[in-house]
Design a binder for these strands. Structure first.
Lengths: 239, 239
DNA sequence: GGCCCACATGGCACTCAGTGCACAGCCTGG
DNA sequence: CCAGGCTGTGCACTGAGTGCCATGTGGGCC
């Protein structure tokens, strides 16, 4: 012990957890995930094998070291909502929290992306993480849509659409090695979903396609203007 | 090949694979998934431990014994499409293939549902299966939407929506112990997605909500009637 | 100071999933 | 009769994950 190996820290104390993540990724990138054993990781980090499983319940968890915190953040964010927030817009904002997690550390995110793309076990693990995000969004929407006809169906579908759009943009950004503007890409993708499902007006961000040649407007005389505008946005998009 | 089973024949020869599934489920239901070891299963089935892994790459696979076949069916179904099929309608029909797999054996499906609900490892495995279905649908839609603006985004979002709607109905049916009409529930749920995304008319099955108080119709003079009808269906639903 | 408790770490030993390999039966065609 | 394939089996091995207990080590408390 006290062999401060692999700790390029200034004089700081990198709390072992970080050291384990660093050691793990060095080995994963060098020789691959499956070719790296937990023993290899703890040897490089200079700690005991048992300590690894103290910090990470499984070998896969070391690849996603901060999703647990992010999930908690998202749940807190949604719990802090009130009815003044348009529900679909709110879950889109919640999804942006996840983007923030990736964007605040682009090189790490890109490395991890390459890893998860190649290793089936990591893909499966990532799916279970994404699923928990999606469930959080869906539960929030279910509560907001409670009592509405087909409310839970609508909630599940919108949550899935939001996650799919978010991941579409996120993965496009990751494939470009984190070079582009992640925020803009995600905004565009979420705008597409918003234009389909959002129920109240907001900053004009409609993005529906107009591959069709017809848009239909039937309005009640007493309809609020924003509903008409929103439907037009939704149908015409910005195209 | 030549696995002509699917019926627990009287004096038929249940080809070991089926025996393993039966033994596994007996033990899983008796004492739980994690409390059952592969050795327990092969002991009950009266076969060698090595044979288990010949038929199932992992312990989890024995819980989903026929999804591999179903996925192949779905891919074949989509590959057999031509451009006369409206794309969104086509992927909805593909999703119904999965429903068929569940519906043809309700008690088994319900048992498995209860199992996967309780065991995190099985949930994760199921997610990876569902993900492969979703990818198959998305790839098909991407090809159909190729060249269109935001085509891949639209494809991914619709695939996710279809899967979410399908699972919403399927799980509702499973929660009811397979008592209701699975086909009708899935039709209703997929109808909701169709009403949002389908681009060509079909058997009237629109199901969008009309919680709003306004519907907008703007039409070009030369728009085909079906487009107008479809938009109206989409916006007014059957409510 | 001496003592004790909490806590973080490390070291075994163990279970169990999954794999590679080699071998035994069996069937089929020559 | 044998050659070669296909199926099932036994065995030994790797590696993830767990429970238990032995160490520190630091801080309060008497």
């Amino acid at each position: 012990m006290s062999s401060t190996s692999a700790a390029p820290g200034r004089g700081e104390k990198p709390p072992m957890r970080d050291a384990l993540v660093a050691a793990a990724f060095r080995l994963f990138l060098e020789r691959g995930y499956e070719q790296t054993t937990v023993d290899d990781i703890v040897a490089l980090a200079g700690v005991g094998r048992r300590s690894f499983f103290r910090y990470f319940p499984s070998k896969e968890d070391v690849v996603f070291p901060d999703h647990e915190r992010c999930l908690a953040d998202m749940e807190a964010f949604l719990a802090a909502s009130d009815d003044s927030h348009e529900p679909v817009r709110r879950v889109c904002d919640a999804a942006r929290l996840v983007l923030g997690l990736y964007a605040e550390n682009p090189t790490f995110s890109v490395q991890r992306y390459r890893l998860t793309k190649r290793v089936p076990g990591l893909r499966a693990y990532e799916l279970s993480v994404v699923w928990r995000y999606e469930r959080a969004l869906a539960e929030y929407l279910r509560a907001r849509f409670a009592g509405r006809r087909e409310g839970t169906l609508r909630a599940d579908v919108i949550a899935a659409a939001v996650v799919a759009a978010h991941n579409n943009a996120l993965r496009s950004w990751l494939r470009s090695d984190g070079k582009g503007d992640a925020g803009a890409e995600v905004d565009r993708a979420l705008g597409y979903v918003l234009s389909t499902y959002a129920e109240a007006p907001g900053p004009a961000r409609a993005a529906a396609e107009t591959d069709g040649d017809v848009v239909v407007v039937v309005s009640r005389r007493d309809a609020p203007l924003w509903r008409i505008v929103q439907e037009l946005e939704s149908l015409l998009g910005r195209g």
